[in-house]
Every structure is written in C-alpha cells, then in structure tokens.
Amino acid sequence: MRATLSHISRNSAVLALRTTLLASTPLTFRTLSPTTSRTLSTSTPRHDLPNVTARETLLPQTHYDLFPSFGPDALPPKGPFTIDLALLRKEFLQLQAKAHPDLAPQEKKRQAEALSSRINEAYKTLQNPLLRAQYLLEMRGIDVAGDETAKVEDPELLMEVLETREVIEEAATEEELQPLRELNERRVAGSVGVLEEAFKNDDMEAAKEEAVKLRYWVNIRECVDAFEPGKPVVMIH
C-alpha cells in the first residue's frame, strides 16, 4: 500500500491538528494498525499528550484515517464501500475549521496549508464513489484512474455508450435528456452496489472492472450536465 502522507511537514501538521482535536472536541483519532500506519522512530516522550511516547504515536496514513469516525476499520473489506456522507461532511467541516491556515501562527502556516490541502483531497476522494473506488484500488497497486487504456471489453456496453452519445448529440433541449439522466443514475447506483460486494469479498479484479464501468456512467453524467444544443459530446469509449 502506498503511503499518502510521506513528507515531514505534512506529518507535523497532522500531529498539530490531532493535538488540538484531542484538547477541544470529543472527536478522537483511532490508533492505526501497523499495516496502515507508521510509528515515529524516536521514543522521546511527547509533551503535548501526557504519558505517550513518540514511538507509541501513529500518524494518519490514509484518507480514512484523517476522519475521527472512520479510521483503518472503515477500510474495505473490514468496512463497507459505501460510507455515511453526512457524517463525512460534518467531520470534514470540523477538521477544516481547526486546520484553516488563517488560524495558524506565521511560522506554522505552511504546515497548516499542507494539512488543509490534505483534508480537502481526502474529502473530495471519499465523498465520490468513483474516486473512492479508484483510491482503494490504487492502495492495492491497481491504477485505474491513470490508466487510459483500462476499458471494459464488453461489446454491448460499448454499444450502449455510443448510442447514449447519439442521444445527447441529437437532443434539442435539456428536458429531452431527463429520461437518460434518470436511467444513468440507476446505472451509477448499480455499479456502486457491485463495488460494495466486490470490496466486501476482497475481489480486486471485479472491483477494477466495475470501477472502469462506473467511469463510463460518470462520464455520461458529466456530458448530460454540460449539455448545450449542438455542442460536441466527448465520451469514453
């Protein structure tokens, strides 16, 4: 699994926020397992948390670990693929309120900016099913997001995508695309359900195939949302 918080400045920023949260809010960071976290190399006692040595302190290493109610136990297959988006947003706002660079002293602004960016990246990824699936696959060494050649070799699916493009190109108004929009949202929901089962069963091959398929449906959604009469339609196929 690729470590996502490798720079010392980011680790320091996360540690500073962790201390603030422990002191001022009931939200707490979970202790991470050795497989998803890194221990600090020194055993010097920390002064911000009594009776805790640096060796015992584990810093967040995944997007999940940044959010107090999630952590390593939320990672599939331990946890479900779908997550509580309302809770995620609530904790995102709490974290950003405390990590805002404007609240940091001048000498720690760069750390605060790095942490704020990290929190934004984590939230953007986890709240989006496609980005979340791609992130989970990337953690297992499977690059779907960056592999433009990753396609579903399904003639029926490819025909469906091409027919959908024709429907969008021939539409005269947004209202004409409403049935397509509703159909496509059902496709998205269906893919999310398949991903739920794939990650639950730790079936990365099935998860990869469905993530690629979901990319088609998300692309169709984007094309419908950006619809303008006569505007060319660029779709994955």
Rank of each mutant, 00 (worst) to 15 (best):
R2M: 12
A3T: 07
T4K: 12
T4C: 10
L5Y: 10
H7I: 05
R10V: 10
L15I: 12
A16V: 12
A16Q: 12
L17M: 04
T19R: 14
L22Q: 12
L22S: 13
A23V: 00
S24Y: 11
P26N: 00
R30F: 14
T31W: 11
L32S: 15
R38S: 11
R38A: 08
T39K: 13
L40F: 06
L40T: 10
L40G: 13
T42N: 02
P45D: 07
H47K: 15
D48H: 05
P50G: 14
N51R: 15
R55D: 01
L59H: 00
D65W: 00
F67Q: 05
G71V: 09
P72D: 15
G79M: 04
P80L: 05
A99Y: 01
P101Q: 07
D102W: 09
D102P: 01
E107D: 07
K108I: 00
K109E: 02
Q111M: 07
Q111S: 10
A114G: 06
R118N: 10
E121C: 04
E121I: 00
A122K: 05
P129G: 05
L131R: 13
L131G: 03
R132T: 03
G141A: 09
I142V: 14
V144G: 00
V144N: 09
D147T: 14
D147Q: 07
E148C: 04
T149H: 01
T149G: 02
V152W: 03
E153C: 06
D154W: 11
D154T: 08
P155C: 00
L158P: 11
V161Y: 09
E163H: 14
T164G: 06
T164F: 01
E166T: 14
T173Y: 05
E174N: 05
E174M: 13
E175M: 11
E175D: 13
E175S: 13
L177S: 12
L183P: 01
R186F: 04
R187W: 13
V188Y: 02
G193P: 08
A198D: 03
F199R: 09
N201K: 10
N201M: 10
A206E: 13
A207L: 03
A211P: 09
L214E: 03
R215M: 04
V218Y: 04
K231M: 13
